[in-house]
Amino acid sequence: MSLIEITEVRKSFGTNEVLKGINIDVDPGEVIAIIGKSGSGKSTLLRCINGLETIDSGSIAVAGAQLLPDELHLRALRLKIGMIFQSFNLFPHLTAGKNVMLSQMVVKKVPTADAEATARKMLDRVGLAHKFDAYPEELSGGQQQRVAIARALAMQPMALLCDEITSALDPELVNEVLAVVKELAAEGMTLLMVTHEMRFARDVCTRVVFMHQGRVHEIGAPQDVFGDPKTPELKQFLGLQAA
């Protein structure tokens, strides 16, 4: 059974329809890269999956449970799916450790000592055990993003959504974040990532989704999508064909 089932999802902002009937089923353990030009709807799709945007029609189900727009269902869904953002969005008034502890404690009511143990473990997993007491502003962008990953992991999600998580980073910091993601993929975490890192998508992902004008234009294994693009739009996007 698929972990995430996206069926005929439509979404408009005003008169601008940004998602025009999306169908994707994600199996547990899959690593899916969503690529496409800006404005193709890829970030919106990701944001719909954890309810940051409400969909106009169609359905999204996670582990068999439908996504419904009321607070109770949304929170149940978000316990299953974590999200990582382009701009890190760490809580600036809390240390790295407290960032990872907070939601465990207030959402899952985990006792402080256990939450701290989990936080140390997760920070260690992203290579930042020594930054437990550092505030976000004392960390580099790459380190902040790794803390954000640890924070999402601490909630033990079934899948992670990554929304252009390396786009705000200086080039030399991209790899440390991608290395963490690669490790997660190897451990069997289900990942849906909007990315511009084509090499990473080719090397790590099980499937690649190319979105164009609000539709899934091409979908397939990375070697097919990158090696043998079928449509002129994808060819152009990959730079294989002049405009």
Binding site: L52, R75, R78, G82, N89, S103, V107, M155
Partner: peptide
Amino acid sequence: GQWEASSSLAM
């Protein structure tokens, strides 16, 4: 982003 991050953590 602070609202979105805390929402995505199920708060």
